[in-house]
Each structure stands twice: as structure tokens, then as C-alpha cells.
Write a protein that binds this DNA or RNA. Structure first.
Lengths: 227, 227
DNA sequence: GTCTATAGAGTGATAGAC
DNA sequence: GTCTATCACTCTATAGAC
């Protein structure tokens, strides 16, 4: 899914067993093939969205005949669901910085840095997610209303505890702060073209992402009364 | 384009000129028909993106036979370009709050309020724009690198002047502040499903948008050292 | 100007040879 | 497991009757 490391899982097993039988040079496991297709699918879905993506384009990017895509994933829809589910998994994991014991400034700094790094390293995943949201989240609605909502409510409780201890400004609503953090970090993946264009660059450099994280961190820390 | 007020431009002209000739009951001007199609097209493009949108869906939403769409706009691409151009026009207009004479806090407050109101009242336009960005901005690249970039550079100069006069924190980079403001306001249109789900509501109410604007304003004003 | 009917290209999915 | 050939369907766009 991430980048092109799927090929690494192809096992090279060109050895003789001593009895004259030679094993095939390349054993492609089912899992390896699925990963290869999933990586290609994620890239195509991220550029086109579900409806506009074609199995032909996915096949071409995976360097496979179209029929093979349908052999491993019966329908385009099942393939899409798997791609989206994988993206989600890596998405919710990164909210574990906000715990009652944590220092608010450190937590916010770490979270922003992690999210901007995500946008830089995994823009495809971010865009798959953005496409799904933009089209009304038909496959994610349930998740959003349950798991994500619960997680944000927990974070809200942490912020309330911090505010009670005078560790953070009392008028910060964690829900809306999260909306702002998600939007402001993911924009460097989803709207990368716009950012590049306004900065007058062909492509964003590592330094640009660093500056983005630093500027957003400064804004948010001061904005939460932490400086 | 905005909502369904296109029908208002149909002129009712059922009057007798006194010489016995009766004018047709409803004169649909070409401009009125184009507006009606553009409104339907914007809605469909905003939900599906260019590739996945179909002229059949646009025709259905405009309550017209499919062929009429092609009569008024020769190709789907020309229709899309017109929709995007219209969206842009209303987009860049709203950045006129940042002038050297303005008070920084007032300018930021007004801009955020205007952008959140935009997200609430014109989500279709916001999503058309988001789709275009997400797919690499094939039709807007030139505009982004010129007109928008120039405008942001001007705003950057205004911020520099404000900082020089001690009116605002000196370490705020207006480019990155703009990226944050755009993302954090447009998210209430583009990712409205996510926001609703996390807040546990079916649909966002006016009060939610008000709170979004208020929370973001507080964060940004403090973040820029204005409180 | 309006609309039906259809051409011609492309879509997701599958049958069946290898 | 792999891949070619093809089906049934949908797409944009247009021809031509009204």
C-alpha cells in the first residue's frame, strides 16, 4: 500500500533440493499479489475517486492484465473497500498523543508533526480519504459516527481535564480544534498543487513541510494559550 | 449557479399588444437556460468530480433532455470549465479584507466569518473547487500560479507591514496562515459529513457554523498575538 | 430551439483456453 | 493462476425529425 515495497515480498527461491527438482525462480504469494494490486488501486482511487477510477487503469499501474484484478478482488467495489479500510487503520492510530498525563504543548507539537509527516509521506492515503469524504463518505459513515466520534469525545475530555488544571485555555473546544488540525495538515497532501503554486514551486521540499509544521504549531500553541 | 434561483429569470410575458398578436407565455432567454444548466452541472460535478459526472445526471437535475445540454454547451469539458471559472470568480473576491490600513484583528475576524459563511451557503462551489484541487487542478494550475499567488504575496506584504508596526506577531508567515485558514474554513463544506458525524448530528445547524467561526477566530487571533 | 434515436468508444465483469 | 476474447451495459456526442 505504501509506496512500491510490495515487490519485496516476492520470495526468491531458486534452489535445488538435491533430488533434481528445481523450485520456481519466483514464488509470488497470494498476499504479495494482493499488496501489489492494493498499492496500484490506492494510487488510482486517490487520483480519480471510486466512480472515475477504472479497473483498466489499476491493472495497467499494477502491470497486470485486467482479468487478474478481478481474480484477486471479485469486484471493483470490494477492492475499494479494502483500500479505504487500510487507509483508515493508519489514520486513527495517530491520535494517541492526547492523554491526561501528557503535556498539552508536547502533545500538540507531536500530533501536528506526525500529521504533516503523514501528508508528506503518504499523500495517496490522504487523498483516498479526502475523495471518500468529498463524495459523502458512503463507505465510512458508520465508522465516522462511532469510532472516530468516540475518540474525539475522549480527546475532548482530556482537554477539559487540562483546562481544569489550568494547563490550557479554558475556551478551547477540542472538537473544533481537531477539525482545524486535520484540515490544516491534510491540506498539504490533498491541496498540494495549490500550496506549491502559491509558494511558486514545482514540488514541495522537505523544508516546506517542516516550515508548515512549525508555523501551524506556533499558531496553535499560542492559540491555546500555551506560550 | 447558486441554489435554484435560475428559474426566476424566466420572463412571464403573456400580454396582448393591442393589435391582436399574443406573445408566448414564457420566454426563456438563452442566458436563463445556461444558468439553469450551470446550476445543475455545478451540483453534479461537486458530488462526482469531472470524470464521474455524467451529462445524463446533469440533464436530469436540470429537468431537460440530454441533448439540450450539448446544445447549450458543446462538450462536457466546456461546461465544466465554465462552472470552475464561475466558482473561482467568487472565490478570489473574498480576500479583500487584508489591506495595510485595516486592523489585523478585524480583518482576520471578518475573513474567517466570510469564509465559514461561504462554506455554509455555497458548499457546492467549495466542493467543485476541492475536487479540482484533489485531481491535480488540470484547469486551474495556471490561475493558481499567477493570480492567486500574486494575491497571497500582496497579503504577505501587508502582514510584514503590520509586523513592522508591532500590530501582529513578527513570526507569522502569511502564506502558511492562508493555507490554514482556507483549509480550516472549507473543511466545513468539503468534509461536512465528517464534521457532522463527529458532532453527532445529521446536518450542521447555523449555530455549529457560528461556533466554528468563533473557535477558529479565537485560535487564530491569539495565535497571531492579537489578544 | 427541442427532443428521440443512435453511433462509436469505453466500462465492469466473466468464460474458457492455456 | 494467468490471460485473451468477449458480453452486456453505459458513456459522450450527434444526426435529423419536429
Amino acid at each position: 500500500m505504501r509506496g512500491s515495497d510490495a515487490d519485496n515480498t516476492i520470495i526468491l527461491a531458486d534452489r535445488n533440493d538435491g533430488a533434481g527438482t528445481v523450485r520456481p525462480a519466483r514464488v509470488r504469494s497470494r498476499a504479495a499479489m494482493e499488496q501489489r494490486i492494493l498499492a496500484a488501486a490506492a494510487a488510482v482511487f486517490s487520483e480519480a475517486g471510486f466512480d472515475a477510477a477504472t479497473t483498466a487503469a489499476i491493472a495497467e499501474r499494477a502491470a497486470l492484465p485486467k482479468a487478474n484484478i478481478h481474480y484477486y478482488f471479485r469486484t471493483k467495489e470490494l477492492l475499494y473497500q479494502k483500500v479505504v479500510a487500510d487507509v483508515l487503520e493508519s489514520w486513527i492510530e495517530r491520535m494517541d498523543f492526547f492523554t491526561p498525563e501528557a503535556d498539552p504543548a508536547t502533545a500538540l507539537r507531536s500530533y501536528i508533526h506526525a500529521k504533516v509527516t503523514s501528508a508528506r509521506c503518504y499523500p495517496i492515503e490522504s487523498r483516498v480519504f479526502a475523495n471518500e469524504m468529498l463524495h459523502g463518505a458512503p463507505y465510512l459513515r458508520r465508522f465516522l459516527g462511532r469510532k472516530l466520534r468516540d475518540r474525539v469525545d475522549e480527546i475532548d475530555a482530556v482537554f477539559a481535564a487540562w483546562a481544569k488544571d489550568g494547563k490550557i485555555a479554558a475556551d478551547v473546544d477540542a472538537h473544533f480544534l481537531m477539525f482545524t488540525l486535520w484540515a490544516a495538515t491534510q491540506t498539504y497532501a490533498d491541496f498540494g498543487v495549490q500550496v506549491s503554486a502559491v509558494l511558486g514551486k514545482d514540488k514541495l521540499a522537505d523544508a516546506d513541510y517542516e516550515r508548515a509544521a512549525q508555523q501551524l504549531t506556533a499558531l496553535v500553541l499560542r492559540g491555546c494559550g500555551l506560550r
